[in-house]
Amino acid sequence: MKKILLSAAALVLLFSCQNDTTETATETSAVAKRGCASQEVLAAQMKADPTLALRMSKIEAFTEKAMLSGRLVNGKVEIPVVVNVLYRTAAENISLDQIQSQIDVLNEDFNATNSDFTSTPALFSGVAANVGITFVLQNVVRKSTRTTSFSTNDAMKSASKGIAPTTPSTVLNMWSCNLGGGILGYAQFPGGSSATDGVVMDNNAFGRTGTVSGVYNLGRTATHEVGHWMNLRHIWGDATCGSDLVSDTPTHNTANYGVPAYPHYSTCTGTPVEMTMNYMDYTDDRGMYMFTNGQKSRMDAIFVSGGARAGFGI
Score class of each variant (00 low, 15 high):
K2P: 05
L5G: 14
L6C: 02
A8Y: 03
A9E: 13
V12T: 01
V12L: 07
V12W: 07
L14K: 13
F15G: 01
S16T: 10
Q18D: 07
N19A: 15
D20F: 10
D20P: 02
D20R: 11
T21K: 15
E23W: 09
T24M: 07
A25L: 10
T26P: 03
E27W: 12
A30C: 12
G35N: 01
C36A: 14
A37C: 09
V41P: 01
M46N: 04
P50G: 04
P50T: 07
T51E: 15
T51S: 15
T51I: 06
K58Y: 05
I59M: 04
I59A: 07
E60S: 10
A61F: 03
A61V: 12
T63Y: 00
E64V: 13
A66V: 07
A66R: 03
L68T: 14
N74I: 08
N74E: 14
V77Q: 04
I79N: 04
V82C: 00
V83S: 05
Y87H: 14
A90Q: 14
E92G: 12
E92M: 08
N93M: 11
I94W: 08
S101Q: 06
Q102W: 14
I103H: 00
A112G: 06
N114M: 02
S115P: 13
S115Q: 13
S115G: 10
T118Y: 02
T118N: 09
L123E: 15
L123H: 05
G126R: 09
V131N: 01
V131M: 09
F135M: 06
V136H: 15
R142E: 10
R146Y: 11
S149P: 02
S149G: 01
N153C: 08
D154H: 14
D154E: 12
A155P: 00
M156I: 12
M156H: 06
K157L: 04
S158R: 13
A159S: 15
S160M: 01
K161L: 15
T167C: 13
T170F: 06
V171R: 05
L172A: 02
S176V: 12
C177D: 00
L179A: 07
G182I: 06
I183E: 08
L184H: 14
L184G: 09
G185P: 03
Y186K: 00
G192P: 08
S193C: 05
A195S: 06
M201H: 08
G210M: 08
Y216H: 11
L218K: 14
T221R: 01
A222P: 02
A222L: 14
T223A: 13
H224W: 00
H224V: 00
E225A: 03
V226M: 04
G227N: 09
W229K: 11
I235D: 01
I235K: 03
D238N: 10
D238P: 06
A239D: 10
S243E: 06
L245E: 02
V246D: 04
S247M: 12
T249E: 10
T254Q: 08
T254S: 13
T254C: 01
P263V: 14
T267D: 11
G270E: 08
G270L: 08
G270T: 09
V273N: 03
E274G: 05
M275C: 06
T276F: 10
N278L: 07
D284I: 04
R286P: 09
M290N: 11
F291H: 07
T292G: 04
Q295M: 15
S297Y: 07
R298Q: 09
V304M: 06
G306P: 02
R309Q: 13
G313R: 04
I314H: 11
